[in-house]
Every structure is written in structure tokens, then in C-alpha cells.
Design a protein around this nucleic acid. Structure first.
Lengths: 131, 131
DNA sequence: GTATCTGCAAAACATTTGCAATTCT
DNA sequence: AGAATTGCAAATGTTTTGCAGATAC
């Protein structure tokens, strides 16, 4: 994944690729850990000392609006973000706190009464490594 | 569902059935609309004028801890609560804003790497009535 | 009489908004 | 120069906490 692709990806989705936007999107592409706003901010403020949290919020809201990033509500208190926009579920281990991705099959759900746009699946428990 | 059952239900789960706790649990049993804290408070303060939001928060946190109520994070900003603790999904219509329950069969998901405790499934889109 | 529960006020957070300064073309 | 973007400071809204008074057993 090269820098020029990230810039093109933004342009294709009607987002002007400013330096801050490029860096934030790049971070999400390279860190598939479903980071919080604070994690993204703390990681990038080292490189961009003038960066403000407002810009991180503005940028993420823009990305979600343009559908290039998913908003995840695994924590009750703070939002997380995922550059992987394909349909998949999230599992968080109560011990190691790690968030795993897993495949979901939608066939087993009775959704004949709805036209579904976005799917949000979040399970929690203990992962095999911690058992 | 009789009053005595609600009291017994609380006792069985090591919750002392105070008047406020009884009323809040009763409200959740009778109103399967996945209400917010504010909705619960506004509905009950009419009957219990001295009720405070702190007590609603305290009580709901206790219910979630004792696993007799599920915490739902459909809104990013505020939490919702559900007295139906069986495994089921939630669907919210973008037009009418109504939250529907739907059945999910769990066997069809590939969860061999995890021991799952709680399942959270939230989809959104448009319901048949609004199409 | 002692432990628990309630509820007010204040604090603690995450997120948004208003607006002035900056940047880009 | 003009339009969009950035970022500070303040506001907003939800949830938690400290603590004093009330309640229950």
C-alpha cells in the first residue's frame, strides 16, 4: 500500500487529501486495531505537533460520512474506527482486551422484514489464547 | 407478569428489591422499546417525584452487572437497556427510527477461536413499512 | 443500630460548535 | 483574493463520584 494510493483513495471519495487527512487515513490503513480518537491523536501528534483533536474528530466524521471508514461502538463510552469496510464481526477478549475480527454469515438471520444497510456485530468473552 | 414475580426475580439475582429498583425493572419488563436512561427517568418521575437520574444510573448498572438486563449501544451517544436477555438482534429503521428485534441462530457463525459470553447484533436500514 | 440505598451537586469524560488564524490554489 | 481546512477555547451532553441524609432490617 503506497502513499499515492491513499491519496487517490481519498480523491475518489470526494475528499481533498490534506496532510492531516492523509496521515489519519494512513494510520487507519496500517493499524487495524480499531483505534479510538485518543489513540489516533496520540500516535500522530508525535509526527504532527500542531495536530488538534478537533481535526481528528472532523476528519473521522468525514471519513464515516463518505463511507471509507466504519464507526464501531464496542466501548460504551468512546467510539472506535475501522478502515476495513467489509462485512465482519468483532470479538473482544475480556482478559487480554484484544479485538479480533471474525467472519459472519448472514444467512442464519431472519431479515425478510428489513432492507439492511449496515451490519454491526460485536461479541465478547474469552479468546482461546487466554483460556 | 405480576408484581410479586418482579420482586422474586430481583431477589433471585441478589438484588434487594427497593421501591425504585422494582419500578425501574417493572418499566423495562413492560416497555420493550429499548429505552434510554432519560426515557426511563421521565416516565417514572411522574409516579416517583423524588426519583433522581443518579438512582436510575445506579440501578441500571446494577441490573447489567447481575445480568438481568442488557446494555445496548445502538446510539453512539447514549446507552439503551433491554430486559430481554435472550440472544437476539436489533434493527433500527432510518426513517421511522423504530427499533425491531429479530431472531439470530448462533450455530452458523465461526467462533471456534473464542468462548463467547455476550452477543451484540445491531443492523440498520429501512423497514418494510417505510419502503 | 448498622449497613445499604437514595439523591443532590459537582466532577469527569467524550464529542461538538463558534470562530479566528492558517493554508492551498 | 477566495474557499476550504485547521485548531484553540468554550459549550454540550452523558455518565460517574463524593457525600450527606433517608431508609430498611
Amino acid at each position: 500500500m503506497k502513499g499515492i494510493n491513499i491519496s487517490e483513495m481519498l480523491k475518489e471519495n470526494d475528499i481533498k487529501p490534506s496532510y492531516q487527512r492523509l496521515k489519519i487515513y494512513e494510520y487507519l490503513i496500517n493499524n487495524r486495531t480499531h483505534p479510538t480518537v485518543d489513540e489516533i491523536y496520540k500516535a500522530l501528534v508525535v509526527e504532527i505537533p500542531t495536530l488538534s483533536k478537533t481535526t481528528v474528530y472532523n476528519t473521522l466524521n468525514l471519513f464515516v460520512e463518505k463511507n471509507i471508514v466504519l464507526l464501531i461502538t464496542i466501548d460504551e463510552n468512546e467510539t472506535r474506527y475501522d478502515a476495513d469496510t467489509s462485512v465482519h464481526g468483532h470479538f473482544r477478549c475480556r482478559k487480554c482486551k484484544k479485538i479480533y475480527d471474525f467472519e459472519i454469515s448472514v444467512e442464519c438471520m431472519d431479515l425478510k422484514d428489513f432492507e439492511v444497510y449496515t451490519k454491526n456485530v460485536y461479541f465478547d468473552g474469552i479468546c482461546n489464547k487466554c483460556l
